[in-house]
Design a protein around this nucleic acid. Structure first.
Length: 643
RNA sequence: GCCAGCAUAGCUCAGUUGGCCAGAGCAGCUGAUUUGUAAUCAGCGGGUCGGGGGUUCGAAUCCCUCUGCUGGCUCCA
């Protein structure tokens, strides 16, 4: 008998050679039916693999992330089996589970697998799933494994085998398909009840663009048909919220082939939104001691040689602009920090001046590969909510606290109540990768950790993810339909102050190197607004929306009164317009609703006589008539409720 | 940049295997209507079918190429 310790601390005695599945059965039949894999002594195992010594055991079902991973990985094998059946001789690369499903990289030779072929593959997968074939684990010697794939003439698997040690190689077989695989897998293919292959894409073998391009087939699968249906509905919902679609419909921004790909053009309404956003940020930053600056959109090559960006990115940037006579080279600025370093260096600084916080809504230009461009989230020209803080090493923590406070204030106001962050630290194993003194790094890393703890921010920590010039913190938010987005960052930088030879005179009357902190809580306005559009589905909060109200006259007899109302509202900084078209009121309401304008003020004979407006809220119907003065109060109440 | 796919009126889309003057709805314009809480009616205009080249008696439809877009890959100061 062996002792199995469950996560709740309870211990079960079972016969040696029992599997996780056997233990599950001893708990309940229902549980056993749902077990997909298990963690045995910290390793993820097949649920039916025999356990032969005392062990800790955690069972995974569909509700566990690890359970899903196992399920999807097994689905990838099922897809490979279907592909072998439909495309004899097809060669297989790797087929892992990913966050939302799985993929398999395949080399179909001369045959092209396109999106039109996916339904047939899906059907084959479901046929094979119904056979309820067990996934069978087999330990195999390296020589035998190599022989197997030589026979199959699959050079990809052979290459993978090269990297594996003899004695640690396992094969998994289900039905007529055998694959090199570490496992684990679900008990049998019958668990897979619903499959949807999403798309195909090119992917380089081992992510190396110099190597063979394979066809990657993406799919997702579920243990119940209903879950697939729900997943597809979520995708539909995401499609409805797509910022590219809403941006066009709400006339926020556009792109032009003639202006160039990846260069967003802000239309009046989108620009109004942007301005409101910037004004809000400006105020919040001013409260926290930032000084706003404006710097040019280009800078001489020497600037970027000094900063080091030329050496690293020069060849992959927009190529330089040259002056016609002198042939001087200028680059479009890809970031604002070198300009800001020059501002710092403009005059000597005392430790008493610090921290110096220089902020700019700086528009930068970066060459992104054409295939990478995507709406507002990935562009070639964008405006950062950038700032650089120059401070002494012992001010780093205080500055982090201040930036965290700013970020929290701002995100809360935008309707993102919850945000998390990733702390990226250096890898102690490779100290030579990093610039800056060891004690500065340690101090900065501790400052970040302490600051996030003090404000109760939920964080994950990644060792080795720091930039060579300093540790950093990245913000993450979750949107209304549960998707995670990465926003801006705070990065400590020991490199640029060094390169620009920035100094301050300390209390000891000696020169010292300041620490530089880059921070952009949103990252870029473009990307942030894309997230905001998708989060709100285009229904922006009242304080931010470009058009807060529409006045809808019942007939054009009342347009004079409408203009009076408009003027009164403008005096209170309430912005909107009059729909004076010769249309029925029903039509005007419908059009206004579709434009997602939050407030409709309906004005007819009654209102014109009594000096009132009838208020209707978007998506919420008639709120009754009130005087214009009362409406202003009502409006301010709505604004206050948002804060 | 690479792989797969897409590009028809301002928008959303129809246009069988190449074959009469390329269509619809919405939007727009003109006129009528003066309207009470999600679409008033009528008429009209609008497209070198993304650009260029080719095959063909004939191309929106087939081929090449460029541009842009979509989904991935690679990259991201």
């Amino acid at each position: 008998m062996i002792n199995i310790t469950l996560p709740d601390g309870s211990v079960r005695q079972v016969e040696s050679g029992s599997s996780a599945m056997d233990v599950a059965k001893s708990i309940s039949e229902g549980l056993a039916r749902n077990v997909l894999s298990a963690k045995v002594n910290g390793e993820i195992w097949d649920a039916d693999r025999p356990i032969t010594s005392d062990a800790t055991l955690q069972l995974f079902t569909w509700n566990d992330k690890d359970g899903k991973t196992t399920f999807w990985h097994s689905s990838a094998h099922l897809m490979a089996e279907a592909l072998e059946a439909l495309y004899p001789g097809i060669k297989l690369g790797i087929g892992p589970a990913i966050d939302t499903g799985f993929y398999y990289d395949v080399d179909a030779g001369d045959r092209v697998i396109s999106i039109n072929d996916l339904p047939a593959i899906e059907k084959k997968m479901l046929d094979l799933a119904r056979e309820k074939n067990d996934y069978v684990r087999q330990e195999i010697g390296k020589a035998d494994a190599v022989a197997y794939f030589k026979e199959k003439d699959d050079e990809y698997k052979l290459e993978l085998l090269e990297g594996l040690e003899d004695g640690q190689i396992t094969f998994y077989t289900q039905g007529g398909f055998t694959d090199l695989c570490r496992g684990p897998h679900i008990p049998n293919t019958g668990f897979i009840k619903a499959v949807k292959l999403m798309n195909v894409a090119g992917a380089y073998w081992r992510g190396d663009e110099k190597r063979q391009q394979m066809t990657r087939i993406y799919g997702v699968s579920f243990p119940k048909q209903k879950e697939l249906t729900e997943y597809l509905e979520l995708l539909e919902e995401a499609k409805k919220r797509d910022h590219r679609k809403l941006g066009q419909e709400l006339e926020l921004f556009m792109f032009s082939e003639r202006v160039g790909a990846g260069l967003p053009i802000w239309l009046p309404k989108g620009n109004a939104l942007r301005e409101r956003l910037m004004n809000f940020l400006r105020e919040e930053q001013e409260k926290r001691g930032y000084k706003l600056v404006t710097t040019p959109h280009i800078g001489k090559k020497e600037l970027y040689v000094t900063s080091g960006h030329y050496a690293k990115y020069g060849a992959d940037s927009f190529q330089p602009i040259k002056t016609p006579r002198e042939n001087e080279e200028f680059y479009l600025k890809p970031m604002n920090c070198p300009h800001h370093c020059e501002i710092y260096g403009n005059r000597p600084h005392s430790y008493r001046d610090l921290p110096l916080r220089i902020a700019e809504f700086g528009t930068v230009y970066r060459y992104e590969q054409s295939g990478e461009l995507h709406g507002l989230s990935r562009v070639r020209g964008f405006t950062q909510d950038d700032a650089h803080i120059f401070c002494t090493p012992d001010q780093v923590k205080g500055e982090f606290l201040s930036v965290l406070d700013l970020t929290r204030t701002v995100l809360t106001k935008m309707g993102f109540a919850e945000f998390t962050a990733q702390i990226s630290l250096r890898d102690p194993a490779t100290p030579t990768k990093y610039i800056g003194s060891d004690e500065n790094w340690t101090a900065a890393e501790n400052a970040i950790i302490e600051a996030t703890q003090e404000v109760g921010l939920v964080t994950t920590t990644e060792i080795g993810e720091a930039a060579f010039y300093g540790p950093k913190l990245d913000f993450m938010i979750k949107d209304a339909i549960g998707r995670s987005w990465q926003l801006g960052t705070i990065q400590v930088d020991y490199n640029l102050p060094e390169r620009f030879e920035l100094e301050y005179i300390g209390a000891d009357n000696k020169p010292h190197r300041p620490v530089m902190i880059h921070r952009a809580p949103f990252g870029s306005l473009e990307r942030f607004i894309s997230i905001l559009i998708e989060n709100t589905a285009g229904k922006f909060p009242l304080w931010l929306t470009p058009e807060q109200y529409a006045i809808l006259p019942i007939s054009d007899k009342f347009t004079g009164y409408c203009h009076e109302v408009e003027a009164q509202l403008a005096a209170h900084d309430i912005k909107g317009f009059i729909d004076d078209r010769s249309e029925t009121i029903g039509r005007k309401i419908r059009d206004t609703e579709l434009k997602k304008i939050p407030i409709m003020l309906i004005v007819g004979e009654k209102e014109a006589e009594s000096g009132e407006v009838s208020v209707r809220l978007q998506g919420d119907g008639d709120k009754g008539a009130m005087s214009v003065a009362d409406f202003v109060t009502y409006f301010k109440g709505l604004l206050a409720a948002e804060a």
